[in-house]
Amino acid sequence: MFGEGILKGLAETARNFLGSYVSKKRLTTVQYPEQRLPQIEAYRNFPFLVYDGDDWQQGLRCVSCFICEKECPPKCIIIEKSTDKKPDAVGKLQFYPKVFNIDVSVCMSCQICVEVCPFDAIKMDTDFELSSTDRFSGLLWDKKHLAKSNEHYHKIHPTEAAAVDAQLAAERAKIAAKTKATAEAKPATPTPPANANGAGPNAANQPVPTATEK
């Protein structure tokens, strides 16, 4: 009949209207600033720089290799290399970034910087409340703003961080074995030494650190 569908529709919307006052299940809205949904582990937003230990300057893993700067599609990473060296996450002496800026207004959250970094120095953060009243310098984040502790990384992405930590520990062990081996090999003949850590016999010949694949 003419108009039957309209009446059906009106009944449906009336049911929704009244139902939303009766059953709380219908209202799925989360009242955001007061209520929050639990964060999903795979969520990612903007990059941050990981540091180990308590001192964010000393512990910074980044060795200023410029790979991320070159790979970043919108070119929003700006790095300046230091002149001196400091030990990196695995204990080797490396350069460190004097300046490390990311323009988050340009960053498109593609995670490519994270994929390419061979030193596990840059990871994706989950913080999304980033608005600033200063649209220029407020959105150009410097090294200090970007540096976040490894504990923070563990908090936001526990599985991933654990895997990274295990890998770094293995590399540290390799380095330790290598230095020990070279120390032992110096006075003795250059035969391969007995491996104390159980790593393969050619572990000492591998380039360190290895490129990480995730």
Binding site: N16, F17, G19, S20, L27, T28, T29, Q31
Partner: peptide, 10 residues
């Protein structure tokens, strides 16, 4: 408010 309730929003 009415339209919201019709769509099960606040």
């Amino acid at each position: 408010k009415g339209l919201g309730r019709i769509q099960n929003r606040y």
